[in-house]
C-alpha cells in the first residue's frame, strides 16, 4: 500500500481569496461556497495552473522545486467541463484500463468513440477516468457529478472512494450538494465572505 499522501499549504493566496494555511491528508475533503467565491481558482492554484502567492508541498516536496508538469501529474485537476483534442476517446488515455470504464458504467467500446458524440455525463465520467489512469497523489475534482443521474453519481462516488483507499490518496471534491458532502464524509471546507473577498473555513470533521 502506498504511503499516506500529504498536501500542505502555507499562505497560499489567489484572486480574492485570503491566504490559506492548510494540511490535507489521505481521504476525501469536500469544498463548497457561493458561486464566484473562487473554488475553481483555488483548485487551479493547487494544480499550479494559476499564478498565486504562497507555498505548497506534496509529500514534503515543494511545488516550486518540481517542474510544473510533474507537479500536475501528482496534484491533478479534473475540470468541471473537460475538453478533447484527439479523434478517439482512447487517444486521451495514457493507459487503457477496461475495468475502469466498466466501473464507471461505460462499455469497452467507448475507447473508439468520437469525443464529439459524447453526452455531457459521458464526458464527465471519462474526464475522471483519463485522470485516474495517471494515478495522481491528490485529485482535485470540480463538481464531478454535476451532469450525472443518481445511478452514475453513485458509481462515480464509489470509484473515487475505492481509489483514495487503495492509493492512500488525497481527494478534494467541490460539491454544492449537502447530502453528497455528508455521504462522502471527511472534512468539509467552505469559502465564506470575509472583508473584500473570501476566506477558507473548516466546517466539520
Amino acid at each position: 500500500m502506498a504511503t499516506p499522501a500529504e498536501l500542505r499549504l502555507e499562505g497560499l493566496q489567489v484572486g480574492r481569496l485570503e491566504p490559506v494555511d492548510l494540511r490535507l491528508g489521505p481521504g476525501i475533503t469536500t469544498l463548497h461556497g457561493p458561486s464566484g467565491s473562487g473554488k475553481t481558482l483555488f483548485l487551479r492554484a493547487l494544480a499550479d495552473l494559476e499564478p498565486h502567492a504562497g507555498r505548497a508541498w506534496l509529500d514534503g516536496r515543494e511545488q516550486a522545486a518540481l517542474p510544473a508538469h510533474l507537479w500536475r501529474r501528482r496534484v491533478m485537476l479534473v475540470p468541471a467541463e473537460a475538453h478533447w483534442w484527439g479523434e478517439r476517446v482512447g487517444d486521451h488515455f495514457a493507459r487503457r484500463d477496461d475495468r475502469l470504464l466498466e466501473a464507471l458504467g461505460l462499455p469497452v467500446a467507448a475507447w473508439g468513440w468520437s469525443p464529439a458524440r459524447l453526452s455531457s455525463g459521458e464526458r464527465q465520467r471519462l474526464a475522471l477516468a483519463r485522470a485516474l489512469v495517471l494515478e495522481p497523489r491528490a485529485l482535485l475534482l470540480d463538481e464531478p457529478t454535476a451532469n450525472l443521474d443518481a445511478h452514475s453519481r453513485e458509481r462515480l462516488e464509489d470509484l473515487v472512494q475505492d481509489y483514495r483507499t487503495a492509493r492512500n490518496a488525497i481527494v478534494l471534491w467541490v460539491s454544492h450538494d449537502p447530502e453528497q458532502r455528508a455521504r462522502l464524509g471527511g472534512t468539509q471546507l467552505a469559502l465564506r465572505p470575509s472583508g473584500q473577498g473570501f476566506a477558507l473555513h473548516v466546517e466539520a470533521a
Partner: peptide
C-alpha cells in the same frame, strides 16, 4: 480549453 486540460493532465 484544450490546452488548459492537457496542462492539467501533466503534459
Amino acid at each position: 480549453p484544450v490546452l488548459e486540460d492537457r496542462l492539467a493532465l501533466g503534459h
